[in-house]
Amino acid sequence: MSEKFELSSEQTHQEGQINQDELILQQQRQIQQEISESTPLVGELEAISSLNAEYSSDEVYLQKIKDLASKYNYGYIEKLLSNKDEFKTFYTLAENSKSSLVELGFPQFTVEDFYDTFMEVLKRISDMPTLEDSKRELHQLFNEQGYSDYMVVYLRLLTSGQLQREKDFYSCFIEGDRTVIDFCHQEVEPMYKESDHIHIMAACSAMNTGVRVVYMDRGNNKQVTEHDLPEGSTPYVHLLYRPGHYDILYPN
């Protein structure tokens, strides 16, 4: 009797050790699943004042929202789609991107899959008869996990390609003794890794565009901080950064 008891207590003890890792991973998965089930991949447009409710108890954030509201308003502007020439330039750039990735040593074989889907999406939205239809199609495709994941992978590869092409320049921005290639393998190419300054910078130069990021953090400034990436470029897309998340802003 006592032997049996000892045996089972040892088992429990061992299970306790087994489960440590599993519990952590399980909880991470659960949180991710809850988030992904309750929020669309790309949400609908909202007025900037909707941020007020989220931060109603935080003075610093409220001040910044006020500042933000005077500059931005969510509106229906999808610049690339409304300018046929610029869209064409972008399309050509995208078309040529696969071969330059392969030249950098990315395996043609897997890159192809993501490239094909990326081009298919561009084609599908540009083939729509009206701008409204294009936007609806874009919104819909980006909300389908199958398409969205493929698009995201391809953008990650383009970003990684750009970092590697100009690795001398970007190596100054990488902390620790990691090479640009290590950094690409660990922080750029895998899915679900957060995009930092350096990712945005490289993604912008890869696509020959500029982004303005508006940082809303808990810093003491009453105004939001703005950064244009790459420095001195004309911002084409405006992003609102809140720790862990980017929203698209549509300027007035």
């Binding site: 395996p107 897997t110 992978v153 660990q186 899915m191």
Partner: peptide, 16 residues
């Protein structure tokens, strides 16, 4: 091996 978990990327393959 890190590419089997944390550093896995969809651009990798059985071959890599």
């Amino acid at each position: 091996l890190s590419i089997l978990t944390d550093d896995w990327s969809p651009a990798l393959s059985v071959q890599s």
